[in-house]
Design a protein around this nucleic acid. Structure first.
Length: 274
DNA sequence: CACGAGACCTGTTCGC
DNA sequence: TGCGAACAGGTCTCGT
């Protein structure tokens, strides 16, 4: 599921609270219950449970698709991968199916990591850089300029779609927002990165930022049974719209496979350069 | 370095 | 209705 806008929406909900629960800021972990050991990447399940007890949640933030809880001593990092989600539930409420790690807080709520496919991971580390060091630029960071982006693209021969999904290049873009951004920029997913002109690079960066911000504004996208709350799925222009008309020109949206990922584009608006 | 295939998992939807 | 195949928001590893 979650790409940058979905993770950002979850961060804001946990940090600011919502109708269902208060902010987690200032709460303390009393206990961790690991129901699926594979969900904890580091340290060992025993050490994870022992170390987190008593630590206070001081900051809640995001880097790429990682959610960060800065605690008194350590940082708890969470990556939701395909099907992960986070719930804050009243103590008396029964746990939903596929709950993998359950935290007891010093308030009458459980903090639940839920993940049907078991791809998601948690880390409890002294220094978040242990986990985050390989990540590339944050696309919404305005210190990252169109010139920087052009320079980065110029050095790559890779196709745009796989490059945008490479987290060491840009951090946070996934399959939905890659397809949406390329469509908005009028670029074919198979275009070699070093083929772009400076103005095309600028247009692509602006398109990436536009769709990410649009996703955040709509609280992310909710597809199928995974992740509820967002509504950006009602505004997809190409993603999972195979055969439907392009909102710009009316041509049927095509689906191809690129790097083993479903890829949606408009053959009219996004021609493959010769 | 770049790419493709396979692995990790479970659940839903589609086609016959 | 039943059943297998295809597909799903991600990332890692290995072989070429």
């Amino acid at each position: 599921m979650p790409e940058l806008p979905e993770v950002e929406s979850i961060v804001r909900r946990l940090r600011d609270g919502c109708a269902e629960h208060p902010s987690l800021s200032g709460m303390r972990f009393q206990q961790a219950n690991i129901l699926w050991a594979g969900s904890v990447a580091s340290p060992s399940p025993e050490q994870f449970c022992r170390r987190i007890i008593g630590q206070e949640i001081q900051q809640i933030s995001r880097r790429g698709k990682y959610l960060l809880l800065s605690l008194s001593q350590d940082t708890l990092l969470i990556h939701l991968r395909m099907s992960g989600d986070l719930f804050v539930l009243p103590l008396q409420q029964s746990l939903p199916a596929h709950s993998r790690v359950v935290f007891t807080l010093d308030h009458p709520f459980n903090f639940v990591f839920n993940d049907s496919r078991k791809f998601g991971r948690l880390w409890l580390v002294a220094d978040p850089q242990e986990v985050l060091s390989g990540l590339g630029q944050e696309p919404l960071d305005l210190a990252f300029t169109a010139d920087d982006f052009y320079e980065a693209l110029r050095g790559k021969k890779r196709q745009l779609k796989p490059l945008l999904l490479d987290q060491s290049f840009l951090a946070g873009i996934g399959n939905i927002y890659a397809d949406e951004a390329l469509h908005l920029a009028g670029l074919h997913p198979l275009t070699p990165a070093d083929h772009l002109s400076p103005s095309q690079a600028k247009k692509l960066l602006e398109a990436i930022r536009y769709v990410l911000r649009e996703g955040i504004r709509r609280n992310g996208a909710s597809i199928d049974w995974v992740y509820r709350g967002g509504e950006f799925q009602n505004h997809f222009r190409v993603y999972q719209r195979t055969g439907e008309p392009c909102p710009f020109c009316g041509s049927p949206i095509q689906r191809i496979t690129v790097g083993q990922r479903g890829t949606h584009f408009c053959p009219q608006c996004q021609p493959l350069p010769s």
